[in-house]
C-alpha cells in the first residue's frame, strides 16, 4: 500500500552548516545512545549539531489524550528553545509529525508564523536523503534486516521511503519485507495502556511477522514502536531486537563496520 500523498511534498533546503537536534523525551531518558549516534553521523556528514538543553517533549502524549491545553503549554516552550533559523532534525517520525503538522493546529492562535517553525522540522532519514543527499559506504558484513516503518513516519511525514532508500544504499545489507509491513505495531502512546488487550494483540502479530523472517535485527526510526516491539519480544524471550536507524547507519559506515 504505497499511496501518493501530495501533502508530504515539500521543497528541501541546501545542505546547512548547522542543524538543531530534537532528541525526544523517550530517547533522552531511555535510549540516549541513539541521540549520540545521530549526532556523530550528522557530524561525519560535515554538519554541526546544536542540542538545546532546554528541550523536553513535543507534547504529543497529552495532545493525543485530548489534553490540548496541557500539550500547548509544553509545545510553546519547545519552540522557544530553537531560535536560530536552521533545520531541526528529529529522530522520531511520530514526534516529527506532531511538530511538523499538529503544531499548526495546536498553536495557530498562539504562535505567530507557526508555519515557519513547522517547515524547519525534518525527520532524521528524510533529512539524510533529501537535504544531505548522503552516499553511504557500507563497511559491514553481509546481513539481512527488516525495516519497521512507523505509522506516523509513513502517513504523517511520508518518510517510510527514505528509510528504505538508506538501507538500500548499504551494499551488504539485504532488506527483507515482513508480512503486514505497513500495519501498526499497536503502540499508539496512551492507547497501549488504555486498551492494553487490543494493543497487545497487535504487537503480538507484529512480532510474529518479524520472527517469521530470518533477519538478525529489525531497523526503525522510531523508539516508540521499538520500545513496544522489543518489549514484547523480550517478554516472549525471543532474541530478535530492533535498532535505531541512526545507530545502524553509523555502525555500518564507520571503520569497524560492526552492526
Amino acid at each position: 500500500m504505497t499511496q501518493l500523498n501530495t501533502q508530504h511534498l515539500r521543497s528541501y533546503p541546501n545542505k546547512p552548516a548547522q542543524v538543531y537536534l530534537y532528541g525526544t523525551c523517550l530517547v533522552d531518558s531511555f535510549f540516549p545512545d541513539s541521540g549520540i549516534d545521530a549526532i556523530e553521523f550528522l557530524e561525519q556528514q560535515g554538519v554541526e549539531v546544536l542540542y538545546p538543553q532546554g528541550q523536553s517533549c513535543c507534547g504529543q502524549p497529552a495532545y493525543n489524550s485530548g489534553y490540548q491545553d496541557e500539550a500547548k503549554a509544553v509545545a510553546i516552550e519547545q519552540i522557544k528553545q530553537f531560535p536560530l533559523d536552521i533545520p531541526i532534525v528529529i529522530i522520531s517520525g511520530s514526534c516529527g509529525g506532531m511538530m511538523r503538522h499538529h503544531y499548526k493546529d495546536l498553536l495557530a492562535d498562539d504562535v505567530p508564523e507557526i508555519e515557519k517553525f513547522c517547515d524547519r522540522i525534518f525527520e532524521f532519514t528524510e533529512f539524510l536523503v533529501n537535504v544531505l543527499r548522503v552516499k553511504l559506504n557500507d563497511k559491514g558484513d553481509p546481513q539481512r534486516v527488516a525495516l519497521h516503518t512507523s505509522c506516523a513516519a509513513r502517513r504523517e511525514m511520508g518518510v517510510h521511503i527514505t528509510g528504505r532508500q538508506l538501507l538500500g544504499q548499504l551494499d551488504n545489507v539485504e532488506l527483507i519485507t515482513h508480512d503486514y509491513e505497513s500495519e501498526c505495531c499497536g503502540f499508539g502512546g496512551t492507547f497501549s495502556v488504555k486498551h492494553p488487550d487490543i494493543s497487545g494483540a497487535m504487537v503480538k502479530d507484529k512480532t510474529k511477522n518479524l520472527l517469521d523472517t530470518d533477519v538478525v535485527k529489525y531497523i526503525s526510526a522510531d523508539w516508540g514502536c521499538m520500545m513496544n516491539i522489543n518489549g514484547s519480544l523480550d517478554y516472549q524471550k525471543k532474541g530478535l531486537r530492533g535498532e535505531h536507524i541512526a545507530t545502524y547507519l553509523l555502525n555500518r559506515t564507520t571503520n569497524n563496520g560492526e552492526a
Binding site: S29, F30, F31, P32, I36, V203, N228, G231, Y235
Partner: peptide, 21 residues
C-alpha cells in the same frame, strides 16, 4: 500496569541524552 501484561518494562538509561551531550 497494563504495559507489562504482554511486554517487559523498558529500563531508563544510566544518564540522559542531555547529560551525555
Amino acid at each position: 500496569g497494563p504495559w507489562t501484561t504482554v511486554r517487559t518494562a523498558p529500563q531508563p538509561a544510566a544518564k540522559t541524552l542531555h547529560e551525555r551531550i
